[in-house]
């Protein structure tokens, strides 16, 4: 028993962590055992990132770490020192996923909304890598994102529709450029 207590004295010393969160330089003091999701939610009050299982099985806590989607429950905040982190709040404010959000809204591709930030972050990454994924590829990309409410189809529809719209816009842009 006492061994744990003495460990706590040493190990609970907080560490100053600096990172760029949603485009802003941010510093906070964390205990090494604080996960990134807990740090974002409590210290930085970015509660749009959710904790659903704390073991990487539900996808509710996805954030972008240096541009890639990762589970914020599967790393400690100290590990993110020096990294760039983008959460649902930042992606919303920058407008980069505005079309995805609008399509999710139009098709009611969310109910309780708890899985939604993670879904959007994964969808955003998918469409950044693959311009026009098949429905199968969309479902595959979402295979680690649990939604208990929707049954997934509207989410797949929304992502497919945005992919089509972006592709059409890109084609138009290319046409415009060549003419």
């Amino acid at each position: 028993m006492s061994s744990i207590m003495s460990d706590l004295d040493e190990a609970d010393a907080t560490v100053r962590v600096r990172f760029v969160v949603n485009g802003r330089k941010t510093a906070c003091d964390v205990a090494p055992r604080d996960t990134l999701v807990d740090c974002l939610r409590t210290q930085l009050e970015l509660t749009g990132t959710h904790a659903g299982c704390e073991m990487g099985a539900c996808g509710a806590c996805l954030v972008q770490l240096d541009g890639r989607a990762v589970h914020a429950c599967l790393m400690f905040a100290v590990q993110a020192d020096g990294a760039r982190i983008d959460t649902i709040e930042g992606l919303s404010e920058s407008g980069v996923i505005a079309d995805l959000q609008a399509e999710f809204h139009r098709r009611n591709a969310l109910q309780c909304g708890f899985c939604t930030p993670g879904m959007l972050i994964n969808a955003h990454e998918l469409l950044s890598n693959v311009a026009r994924p098949s429905r199968e590829a969309i479902r595959d990309a979402l295979s680690g994102n649990f939604c208990r409410c929707t049954g997934y189809e509207a989410i797949v529809d929304a992502i497919a529709a945005v992919a089509e719209a972006r592709a059409a816009k890109a084609a138009q842009g290319a046409e415009g450029a060549s003419s």
Binding site: T49, S92, F104, G113, P117
Partner: peptide
């Protein structure tokens, strides 16, 4: 639902 989509639930 818009609020939830922006992480503002």
């Amino acid at each position: 639902a818009k609020r939830l989509l922006a992480g503002r639930g």
